[in-house]
Nucleic acid binder design. Structure first.
Lengths: 136, 136
DNA sequence: ATTGCTGCAAACTGTTTGCACTTGA
DNA sequence: TCAAGTGCAAACAGTTTGCAGCAAT
């Protein structure tokens, strides 16, 4: 059951545009921006519009089918929820992005929950800093 | 030695505008946005311009005198480095912002440093989630 | 007297919206 | 059929920039 069937099942219309957005999202191996999705969709269907891409992403987000990340470059990046979560170490010297397994933040999650009764939404968190290579 | 003296010491001109930006920054008890600083400065000197505010903040940032935070509301917030660091739990139900002492992330910092040789820049990190009240 | 800084206006980027037309169910 | 979805253009918010004039050193 992909996003397509979920959309259909919930009574949303399965338009070609939505299908193409979902496919672009799943096809990308990294976190993609709305612009990147738009470029891919437009290559297949030149009349496609970026506002449709945004509206589709908004819908998928509301349904919990995609998650958002801010990797610090001034645009939101999207990732299919199905593909699982992880976090990011973003080097602000060289721009490298290191993937961090979800488990690396389990301890933090527990601390916040226990000491602050705060339920953190730790999906695709970005932590900025300096990577090993750039520390010379 | 405040920001003013540091600026002067480094050969930067100490203009009234810069002084007012620095004062607005230090006067605020919370993390302020450029717009908020601009409003305060403008109240004292109506000819003040928001681009000067941005340029001053940019300079202070480069010199390490202020730090930036993104509390998820689409604008950057600034905080004087002198006042020390802490982190934020941002509730995305009610918008409440809970301050988290720097020490709460020491363990994470150590993990990233040890296991990934990554030197995280954990100043004013924002963690989103649901606060105790909003969990019903 | 320089040259760094400012004010202004205009551009820019990512994103959102109003509206008339189209199309999937 | 007909509400849901689209394309278009225009608006939006926050931020940046080019340039001519001003002012701190």
């Amino acid at each position: 059951m992909g996003c397509d069937q979920t959309l259909k099942g919930l009574g949303y219309r399965l338009t070609p545009q939505r299908i193409m957005v979902v496919e672009a999202l799943h096809g990308a191996d990294e976190h993609v921006s709305a612009e990147e999705i738009y470029t891919q969709v437009k290559a297949r269907y030149p009349y496609a519009n970026i506002s449709t891409v945004y509206r589709t992403l908004e819908l998928l987000k509301e349904l919990g089918l995609v998650t958002e990340t801010d990797l610090g470059d001034g645009r939101v990046r999207y990732h299919p929820a199905e593909k699982g979560h992880h976090h990011h170490l973003v080097c602000h010297k060289c721009g490298k992005i290191i993937d961090l397994p979800e488990s690396a933040l389990f301890h933090l999650e527990e601390t916040l929950s226990r000491d602050y009764r705060f339920q953190p939404d730790l999906k695709h968190l970005a932590i900025f800093g300096v990577c090993a290579d750039c520390q010379k």
